[in-house]
């Protein structure tokens, strides 16, 4: 069954590092599965819990957040601000039956196109193992 399952992944990526890495992956002609939909943000520090919750409630099978390595943030420490917030949301979603593995935080620098490709492919594989998100098959109030 899982062979046919094509997960939908929302990737919230920062403009300066992970988005640039995705761009680099593209220009380097590295291909990665098309399940990932990128949302470009100026910084992971602007990620509010509701972005992640919204993605899950609208049926995303996984959410990946990509930002600059600690110390490399264009805005000094936006990525560090994001870290705890994302841990907190992950903990909350876990209580409602969302496997913690569906939410991933990854630091991918602007020069790491290959890293981006590998991470996305690996994340999609993880989500395929987990199967479709529990909200997919039911009405959400």
């Amino acid at each position: 069954m899982n062979d046919q399952f094509e997960p939908q992944i929302i990737a919230l990526v920062c403009n300066w590092c992970t988005y640039t890495a995705a761009d680099l992956a593209g220009t380097s002609r590295l291909s990665y599965p098309s399940n990932v939909r990128l949302v470009r943000l100026m910084c992971t520090g602007m990620i509010d819990a509701k972005y992640i919750i919204k993605a899950f409630l609208d049926g995303a099978d996984g959410v990946v957040i990509g930002g600059c390595h600690p110390g490399d943030c264009h805005y000094i420490n936006g990525n560090l601000k994001a870290t705890k917030r994302i841990y907190g949301v992950g903990k909350i979603m876990e209580q409602f039956g969302f496997e913690p593995d569906r939410l991933r935080l990854k630091w991918i620098g602007a020069s790491e196109g290959l890293e981006f490709q590998k991470n996305m492919a690996e994340f999609i594989e993880t989500i395929k193992q987990l199967g479709p998100s529990p909200v997919k098959s039911r009405m959400i109030l």
Partner: peptide, 24 residues
Amino acid sequence: KRGMIKMPTETTMFHLTRLAHIGH
């Protein structure tokens, strides 16, 4: 897309977001 939606929408969103914002 979903066949039907309840109105007003965002009920689950409201409770989960409130949990995430001030649960701590």
